[in-house]
Amino acid sequence: MAENQTSTTELTSQYIAQVTSDLERNTKEQDRIAGDISTLKEQLLALQHDHTVLVHMQEALGGPRSAEATPASPSVPNQASAPTKQTRQAKPKKAAATGVKKAADKKTTAKKPAAKAPKSAAQPSLVDLIRGHLEKQSEPRSAAEITTVLSEAHPDRNIKTTVVRTTLENLVARSSAHRNKQGSSVFYTATTEPAAAPQSAATTD
Rank of each mutant, 00 (worst) to 15 (best):
Leu126Asp: 08
Ala80Arg: 09
Ala110Leu: 11
Ala114Gln: 14
Thr109Arg: 06
Gln86Thr: 03
Ala114Phe: 10
Ala80Gly: 06
Ala110Gly: 15
Gly132Phe: 04
Ala122Val: 05
Pro113Asp: 07
Ala117Leu: 13
Gln86Gly: 11
Gln79Trp: 15
Ala143Val: 01
Pro83Ser: 14
Pro113Leu: 07
Ala110Thr: 04
Ala121Thr: 14
Ala121Gly: 00
Thr98Asn: 06
Thr108Met: 05
His133Gln: 07
Asn78Thr: 13
Glu139Pro: 00
Lys107Arg: 12
Lys111Ser: 12
Pro113Phe: 07
Lys91Phe: 15
Arg131Cys: 01
Gly99Ser: 13
Arg88Val: 08
Asp128Gly: 00
Gly99Trp: 05
Lys112Val: 04
Lys106Ser: 10
Ala80Cys: 07
Lys116Val: 12
Ser125His: 06
Lys94Arg: 08
Ala95Leu: 12
Ala121Glu: 08
Ser120Cys: 00
Ile130Asp: 01
Ala114Trp: 06
Lys112Gly: 02
Ala95Pro: 00
Gln79Cys: 09
Pro83Ile: 15
Gln89Arg: 13
Ser125Val: 01
Leu129His: 01
Ala121Asn: 10
Ala110Ile: 01
Ala96His: 12
Ser81Ile: 15
Ala80Val: 15
Ala143Leu: 02
Val127Gly: 02
Lys106Ala: 15
Ala82Phe: 14
Gly132Thr: 03
Lys119Arg: 12
Ala115Gln: 13
Gln89Asp: 10
Lys91Gly: 03
Ala103Leu: 14
Asn78Arg: 14
Val100Gly: 09
Lys85Ile: 07
Gln86Leu: 12
Ala96Ile: 05
Gln86Lys: 12
Ser81Gly: 02
Leu129Arg: 05
Ile130Glu: 01
Pro118Asp: 04
Leu129Ala: 02
Ala114Cys: 00
Gln79Asn: 14
Thr84Gly: 02
Pro92Met: 11
Ala121Cys: 04
Arg88Cys: 11
Ala103Val: 08
Thr87Gly: 04
Lys102Asp: 06
Arg141Ala: 14
Pro92Leu: 12
Lys91Asn: 11
Pro83Lys: 13
Ala110Val: 02
Ala103Gln: 12
Ala95Gln: 09
Arg141Ser: 11
Val127Phe: 09
Lys107His: 07
Gly132Val: 00
Ala143Met: 03
Arg131Tyr: 02
Thr109His: 03
Ala80Thr: 14
Ile130Asn: 01
Leu134Arg: 02
Ala122Thr: 11
Thr109Asp: 09
Gln123Tyr: 09
Lys136Met: 09
Lys91Glu: 13
Ala97Lys: 10
Gly99Lys: 05
Ser81His: 05
Lys136Phe: 04
Lys119Gln: 08
Arg141His: 02
Thr84His: 03
Lys112Trp: 04
Asp105Trp: 05
Asp105His: 05
His133Leu: 06
Ala96Val: 07
Lys85Thr: 06
Ala95Arg: 09
Ala82Asp: 14
Pro140Ser: 07
Pro118His: 07
Thr87Met: 12
Ala115Asp: 15
Lys119Asp: 11
Arg88Pro: 00
Ala96Met: 10
Ala110Tyr: 06
Asp128Phe: 05
Ala82His: 11
Arg131Met: 02
Ser138Phe: 02
Lys106Gly: 06
Pro124Thr: 09
